[in-house]
Design a protein around this nucleic acid. Structure first.
Length: 509
RNA sequence: GAGCGGAUAGCUCAAUCGGUAGAGCAGCGGCCUUUUAAGCCGUUGGUUCUGGGUUCGAGUCCCAGUCCGCUCACCA
């Protein structure tokens, strides 16, 4: 049986909880009706305050939250009550309570306790709006000794912390503590949620229908990545956690659902880094009768609307750089971007040897690169990507690295595809969907050959998907937007772990 | 997967050349009825990440391992 190792402090707390119970006080109180949040209570006070009055008091309010500061002054005690929106100072006066309540409840309050308080708001001598507590209800006593929260906010609104809960590992493992103690963390996740709800709102308004497709796949397709494998006992079959919802969403397009989207998790069995978590969230959207440009505009619309709604403008500060989302964003082909940044002109149709000759001296390992498309893509990824700081659409990708995309009419070696880069990171990807079943079958066969040649991430054959195309899929545009990556930008987070509530970590011990 | 760095009290961190593990905050007790990083007095709290080794003596030096961070690789 696993158990907690109690410290002196936790033992004391457990004992005091027991003695509260013995006195008929529930240390884990139930439902508590609040009249306001702390922020709204303060606003109410400011709205109704009569500055000419000698001593102004608001009508009583009922608030609930976590006690994060306690300053004992003998027969008076000050505290800080924190809730989701903000915090307010509490003032307890000994005379306001029976001696028992003051000793056993008020004085016995620990940092981190969750309480309900009722009373009028007033201003202290130093001008701070403060709740004069007339009634206190214990809602949850803490056992653990929470790290101290000591901070001030200056006039510009900057938080100055004197002690912090900063251990990165502990912050991720015990995110609840991180959320309690680091208010900006809570704010990040609120922003992320806001961004997602703006996307939903816009897509819904445009007539897209939100759907949910399987997370467990028989064939891990729709992207180039290694999957996680799991097992279903009753059917006794291995299944893959999906690496992308793409092929299922397009089956829905075949089925006549003309505009669909899904916001959900993908799982890729790859490395973990500042930009990668094994499970990450993707928005994918498909529009029948559209094409690459339809979804490129959708992408631009969604992201710039989120930026404008959240920041009131089109500029976002990210890691000390100003990102400008004013539309339209730059659009440039992959070949032209390489020319612009690296200064060499690559020709997709030149003999392979010529292409290799031109890329010599760039410091790119070309030993495993067997096709024009892979070479050009490697040059782009290694030499161009990191320079794409401002939002930029790269268009016209080599067909060889885009097995699900429709070829350009005037050049079958290129597809109608775009990727969005922000701060040198791929943030979205979209294309005109390939709806020719024979061509799709040929592409899968090509991928299969690459897989047999050792490319573990080459796309597997999916005959059922080809069969869907044989039933007729309208031309369509499809897009995937990396929600976590975008959330990083909009919250000025350096690491993807700062926008994922519970990032994957190795288990302790 | 590779390289570099880190792990000491509940939290943030010290600890000289290898010589008795400390401070602030939190906790506990006391004083203080408008404080606010409250203050003052007193006090509890340690498997120094784990396991070996060197040494009279290891938080410190050596070896192995665990976990985290950063960089690289793979990828979005």
């Amino acid at each position: 049986m696993e158990a907690f190792e109690e410290t002196e402090v936790t033992r004391q707390r457990i004992d005091s909880i027991k003695s509260l119970r013995e006195k008929g006080i529930d240390p884990y109180g139930g439902r508590y009706e609040r009249s306001h949040t702390t922020a709204r209570a303060i606003q109410l006070f400011l709205d109704s305050e009569d500055p000419s009055a000698e001593k102004f008091e608001s009508p009583p309010v009922r608030l609930a939250g976590r006690l994060m500061g306690k300053r004992e002054m003998g027969k008076a005690i000050f505290g800080d009550l924190h809730d989701l929106d903000g915090h307010v100072q509490l003032y307890f006066k000994k005379n306001d309570f029976t001696p028992e309540v003051f000793e056993e409840i008020v004085k016995a309050l620990n940092l981190g306790d969750i309480i309900g308080v009722e009373g009028p708001l007033f201003r202290t001598r130093t001008g701070e709006i403060t709740l004069h507590v007339r009634e206190v209800t214990v809602l949850s006593k803490v056992i653990n000794n929470l790290p101290p929260l000591k901070e001030t906010t200056d006039e510009a609104g900057h938080i100055h912390r004197f002690f912090q809960f900063a251990d990165v590992e502990m912050r991720y493992r015990q995110r609840y503590l991180d959320l309690i103690l680091n208010r900006d963390v809570r704010d990040h996740f609120r922003k992320r949620s806001r961004m997602v709800s703006i996307f939903r709102r816009e897509l819904d308004q445009m007539g897209y229908m939100e759907v949910e497709t399987p997370m467990m796949h028989h064939i891990a397709g729709g992207a180039a990545a290694r999957p996680f494998i799991t097992h279903h006992n009753a059917l006794d079959i291995d299944l893959y956690l999906r690496i992308a919802p793409e092929l299922h969403l397009k089956r829905l397009i075949v089925g006549g659902m003309e505009a669909v989207y899904e916001i959900n998790r993908n799982f890729r069995n790859e490395g973990i880094s500042i930009k990668h978590n094994p499970e990450f969230t993707m928005l994918e959207a498909y529009k029948a009768y559209g094409d690459r440009d339809t979804v490129m505009e959708l992408c631009e619309h969604l992201v710039s609307t989120a930026v404008e709604d959240m920041f009131g403008g089109h500029q976002v500060a990210y890691q000390g750089i100003t990102l400008d989302f004013k539309r339209p964003w730059k659009r440039i082909s992959m070949i032209d971007a390489i020319h612009e940044v690296v200064g060499i002109e690559l020709d997709l149709h030149a003999p392979l040897a010529d292409l290799l000759e031109k890329t010599r001296g760039l410091g790119i390992d070309t030993t495993d690169l067997t096709t024009h498309g892979k070479i050009i893509n490697a040059v782009f990824e290694e030499k161009v990507e990191e320079s794409l700081i401002q939002p930029t659409f790269i268009i016209d990708y080599p067909t060889e690295i885009s097995p699900l995309a429709r070829q350009k009419k005037d050049d079958p070696d290129l597809v109608e595809r775009f990727e969005l880069f922000i701060y040198g990171r791929e943030t979205a990807n979209g294309f005109s969907e390939l709806n020719d079943p024979a061509e799709q079958y040929r592409r899968f066969e090509e991928q299969l050959a690459q897989r047999q040649g050792g490319d573990q991430e080459a796309h597997p054959m999916d005959l059922d998907y080809v069969n869907a195309l044989r039933c007729g899929m309208p031309p369509a545009g499809g897009i995937g937007i990396g929600i976590d990556r975008l959330a990083m930008i909009l919250t000025d987070s350096a690491s993807i772990r700062d926008v994922i509530l519970f990032p994957l970590l190795r288990p302790k011990e």
